[in-house]
Simulated assay, not measured.
Amino acid sequence: MDRLEAMAMLVSSVELGSLSAAARRMRIPVSTLTRNVNDLEALLGTKLLVRTTRKLTLTDAGNEYVAAAKQILEQVDEQERRAAGEFQTPRGELVVATPVQVARLRVLTVIDQFLAQYPDVRIRLLQSDRNVDLVDAHADVAIRIGRLRDSSLVATRIGALRVVVVASPGVLEKHGGPETPEDLRDFPCAVFDSPYLSPWRFRNPGAEETFTVAVVPRLLVLSPDAAVDAAIDGIGATLVLEHDVAEAVKAGKLQYILQAYEVEPLPVHLVHISRHIMPAKLRHFIDFAVPKLRAELASFGRTPEI
């Protein structure tokens, strides 16, 4: 039994809540993982895990051991990176997680410039409109839209984005413009199913409290591009982020509506896990990307004057 490997298997099992999930992450048979955890318990002469059909529970000894094992594994990983020169020279793979549309509109250009400047770095881009768990995804850094919930992450604000409702001139001429958010209940709508935009939220002028409106979608989509295209094609109004529709509004294909009821712009942060020593590839990427992304988002996030 390799004791460090067994520690990693144990820690992964606890983090994911099951031996089978840990085996899938580590790409090994469940029997191999189970045998190593059993051997570790035999070596220590104590029970670390209580296994039932539904969940794993740590014993008191297991709690202490897993906490120590995490520190040991982090220190080993750190020293291996240092020995490989990763803490002195930017090199190796950098995993960046970002919402799909933010990647397309804002991040890819910055990544292209970064790669041109740092030829020994490779980037793997994880694009998802659901917040990716940095630990589970083995991601180094992520861009998050909305209020941050995980206080353990180190966050750098890079801007904000307005949440806007738009509709095509044709739809507004046919149905008349909604005067209040409640009017949207009887208005044709194309809805982007998003973790940071659903449900549709508004704020009365001059008020701090927000409220939601339950719209009935004529079309439900999973990407902002599809929602914007549907709105342009006359399916109905849609609620998206300002940068998703800026070009269409400028071209006269869509119009902002209900601007007086907009909520506060959503903050946009670049986040990463706190580390004692940061790898050079991550440190250089943050230093490189933050000012460029702030410049990219500088024209957005201002509440309109009505």
Rank of each mutant, 00 (worst) to 15 (best):
R3W: 15
V14M: 04
E15R: 13
E15H: 11
L16C: 03
G17T: 05
T34Y: 12
N36P: 03
V37E: 00
N38I: 10
D39W: 01
T46E: 15
L49S: 04
T57H: 08
N63Y: 11
A67Y: 00
L73V: 05
A83H: 08
P90I: 00
E93I: 12
P99Q: 04
I111Y: 08
Q113N: 15
V132P: 01
D136G: 07
H138C: 11
A139F: 06
V141F: 03
R147V: 13
L148F: 07
L161S: 13
V163Q: 12
A167R: 01
S168M: 00
P169A: 09
L172Y: 02
H175W: 12
G177T: 11
P178F: 00
E179M: 09
P181Y: 01
P181W: 02
D186Q: 14
F187Q: 02
P188S: 06
A190S: 13
V191R: 07
Y196P: 03
Y196S: 10
F202M: 08
R203V: 09
R203N: 05
E209C: 04
T212H: 03
R218C: 03
I232A: 04
D233W: 07
I235F: 00
A251N: 10
A251Q: 13
K253H: 14
Q259G: 02
A260R: 13
A260E: 14
P267L: 02
S274R: 14
H276T: 15
H276Y: 14
I277L: 14
A280V: 10
K281A: 05
K281Y: 02
H284E: 15
A289N: 07
L297N: 05
E305S: 12
I306S: 08
